[in-house]
């Protein structure tokens, strides 16, 4: 454009001055365009983004406020928290706090508090909930049998006590091998024995009998099932009881040295005492036998050992028997 203007200026020499001033004005205005034309164009293979695009704002759904703000005061809590569940701050309208902090600082609040989620809560076992559940299962209950009100009463009807254990565990299986154990216990005074069978029964059961409490305890765990062990325990009890009444032929050969206890009836002292009492008695007259209290004192003296009391009692009995005053 400036070249064209120059040519115009050469053709019109008369108006040179005015044109000059005009050119200056023009040239001043058009200078950037002139420079643009003269510069090399840049070959841009990649399109360079002139402006950085602004990052799109992530649209978020509005978060609803915690449910506790909309809870009625007289709501049914059992409907809010029907079963065991981890703590959730938006459902529990209590200002709970948990956690250890420096002295003076408040404990962490219930929101975003993992400690409150860890501990087991009993929000599903509030007294109204328990009452409701008891009401619901009431129709499956039967009344307590009459005549079994006290322990003394039901122990007379049910002398045998069976103890088994069930295990509640947090495992995928409900089986526990320890649950097979069955303990059967009863008082030995509930069984009827004579002296021989009692002795034999105690020998058969061994250390399952507790002398102090008079309780026989049978523990069975050799079968895999609880039912089998229970049956086995009752079988053992029955078998031992009936076996104790059987007298084997070899039991007759029990000599005085095998006796575990001194018995007046079987011993020489009875024969001697009878001999003294029946001194010079006529033929055919009824035999006098030593008194029961004398027999007891002799048995006591030998079984329990010699002590002051036993010796004194024996002395008294001998005096009485021989009429020595």
């Amino acid at each position: 454009m400036s070249a064209g203007l120059t040519r115009l200026w050469e053709r019109l020499p008369l108006k040179k001055h005015a044109a000059q001033s005009r050119i200056r004005v023009f040239s001043n205005q058009d200078q950037p365009e002139i420079e643009d034309d003269e510069e090399f164009r840049v070959l841009s293979l990649r399109t360079v983004k002139q402006q950085f695009q602004r990052r799109q704002q992530v649209r978020r759904d509005p978060i609803t406020p915690p449910r506790t703000t909309r809870m009625a005061v007289d709501q049914d809590w059992t409907a809010v928290w029907p079963g065991p569940r981890s703590f959730h701050p938006a459902s529990v309208p209590l200002p709970l706090r948990q956690g250890f902090t420096e002295r003076g600082a408040a404990a962490p609040s219930k929101f975003a508090n993992a400690e409150l989620m860890k501990i087991p809560n009993f929000l599903h076992l509030t007294p109204p909930a328990i009452r409701q559940q008891c009401e619901a299962i009431k129709r499956f209950c039967t009344p307590w049998p009459k005549g079994l009100e006290t322990e003394a009463k039901w122990q007379r009807h049910f002398p045998i006590e069976v103890t088994t254990t069930d295990y509640c565990q947090s495992l995928p299986t409900i089986r526990n091998p320890e649950a097979r154990k069955v303990t059967v216990s009863l008082k030995l005074s509930d069984l009827r024995f004579d002296s021989h069978s009692r002795d034999k029964f105690l020998r058969l059961v061994g250390d399952r009998y507790n002398k102090e409490t008079d309780i026989l305890t049978i523990v069975t765990d050799r079968c895999p099932q609880k039912k089998q062990n229970y049956d086995y325990a009752l079988y053992l009890l029955t078998a031992c009881y009936h076996e104790s009444f059987v007298t084997e032929p070899w039991e007759e050969t029990k000599s005085e040295a095998d006796m575990e206890e001194y018995l007046f009836e079987r011993n020489q002292s009875k024969i001697s005492a009878e001999g003294i009492l029946n001194w010079n008695a006529k033929e055919g007259a009824p035999k006098e036998s030593p008194s029961k209290s004398y027999a007891n004192s002799v048995e006591q003296l030998i079984n329990e050992g010699e002590n002051e009391y036993n010796l004194g009692k024996y002395k008294e009995e001998v005096k009485k028997m021989l009429n020595i005053v």
């Binding site: 956690g99 993992a114 400690e115 860890k118 501990i119 087991p120 947090s170 526990n176």
Partner: peptide, 30 residues
């Protein structure tokens, strides 16, 4: 976090366990 701020010897005092089950009891299964 609160969990990280309390070292392991405070388990059972200031913070509690992260796993709750009966397997860790004595003679428990699995």
């Amino acid at each position: 976090t609160y969990e990280m701020a309390n070292p392991p010897h405070f388990i059972g005092h200031r913070k509690s366990w992260n796993s709750w089950n009966t397997s860790t009891l004595k003679d428990a299964l699995r």
